[in-house]
């Protein structure tokens, strides 16, 4: 690991001093849980000269919003959000996605803001040697012709096919969460859709944030049907593994017809993948397996596969159908 300096932000003006320290120095990064930052520093993928430790800033905790939504502080740890009764009650798919991600130790460490900023798990990005347009713009993409079984099939470009790795970002996409940030200029809010960028021609740009912009909270607006939501994750082993495919879903059925539905996919997209085509295909139609299947096909029609990950669209179709069948099988036909 390269040598680094360390600055701890704390005290009354801790947030401002952290913002100033990172904004003024291109070589400084924020340090929260460290589960990505320290890992990638050691592997020479990230190379800040200084870390600004934000862990003692007052940005942890879960607040209930007047509309029935929640405001999750950026430094709230994954394990604390997962075990929060109000999260479990209102947004079970958020809690479930968290519990099915990483390991117990990592969930105690990793912050929610850091989860939104985590780097891709593409082996060519993380080996610090292979051509990678994310790590070194213009270098090329080794994954295109390399081992790509776990790579994305939606939102890819000819410059990058890395899968977005977060579990919890998938239900948050389905829930239209908002990312709140601060810069020296004040507070900013991003719609979830605007926060995660597809690789396109600039795969090194993963977020619209400026250097030194700090996530302060994730806001989850109320959604009554999310009280019966689920997160279904399919992977190569039962635990402590990234998703090959995952589905976050909530659905409201009235008189056999789909009144409202929210669906997002993980493991298949270059960003947490909100399945709007599938949602549009479903709303107003019958809540049957046949419509679920057609909706899944509508979403996945745009998939672009490699020989190694060509199984993913079919796996995603089946997982999506099963998620909706599970949700509509009991009790929801009110």
């Amino acid at each position: 690991m390269r040598p680094i300096s360390y600055l701890r932000a704390e005290g009354a003006d801790g947030i401002d001093s952290a913002l100033r320290a990172v904004t003024d120095d291109p070589g400084s990064d924020f340090l929260a849980g460290g589960t990505t930052e320290v890992d990638l520093l050691r592997q020479h993928v990230l190379g800040p000269r200084r870390l600004v430790d934000i862990n003692r800033l007052p940005l942890a905790g879960i607040e209930e919003l007047p509309d029935g939504g929640l405001r999750i502080g950026a430094l709230t740890r994954m394990s604390d959000v997962a075990s929060s009764p109000v999260v479990q009650e209102r947004f079970p798919m958020v809690s479930r996605a968290l519990v099915l991600g990483a390991s117990a130790q990592l969930r105690h460490m990793a912050s929610m803001g850091g989860n939104m900023m985590q780097k891709v798990r593409c082996g060519y990005y993380r080996d610090a040697e292979s051509p990678c347009n994310k790590r070194e713009p213009g270098a090329g993409c080794a994954a295109l012709t390399g081992v790509s079984r776990t790579h994305a099939v939606l939102g890819t470009s000819e410059h990058c096919i890395a899968t977005h790795p977060s579990d919890v970002a998938v239900p948050l996409a389905a829930l239209d969460a908002r990312i709140r940030t601060r810069t020296l200029d004040g507070e900013h809010t991003y719609a979830f859709d605007d926060f995660f960028l597809e690789p396109g021609d600039t795969p090194h740009r993963e977020h619209p944030l400026t250097h030194g912009e700090l996530i302060t909270a994730i806001e989850v607006p109320a959604l009554p049907m999310a009280r019966r939501s689920l997160y279904l994750k399919v992977r190569d082993r039962e635990s402590y593994e990234f998703a090959l495919v995952s589905v976050a879903a909530a659905i409201e059925v009235r008189d056999g017809k789909v009144g409202g539905v929210r669906i997002a996919l993980g493991g298949v997209g270059t960003r947490p993948w909100r399945a709007r085509r599938a949602e549009d295909a479903l709303v107003g139609g019958p809540a049957t397996t046949k419509s679920f299947d057609l909706a899944a096909r509508a979403e996945l029609a745009a998939a672009r596969t490699t020989p190694m990950n060509a199984f993913k669209p079919e796996l995603a179709r089946r997982t999506l159908v099963r998620a909706l069948e599970t949700l509509t099988r009991d009790g929801s036909r009110s």
Binding site: T35, V38, R42
Partner: peptide, 23 residues
């Protein structure tokens, strides 16, 4: 030494964490 195996697990303030990814 990269947060995968758990052999370095210790407690910080009573919570199990990975000492290899903690500065």
């Amino acid at each position: 030494d990269q947060g995968t195996c758990g052999a370095c697990t210790v407690w910080v303030d009573g919570r199990r964490v990975l000492a290899c990814l903690t500065l």
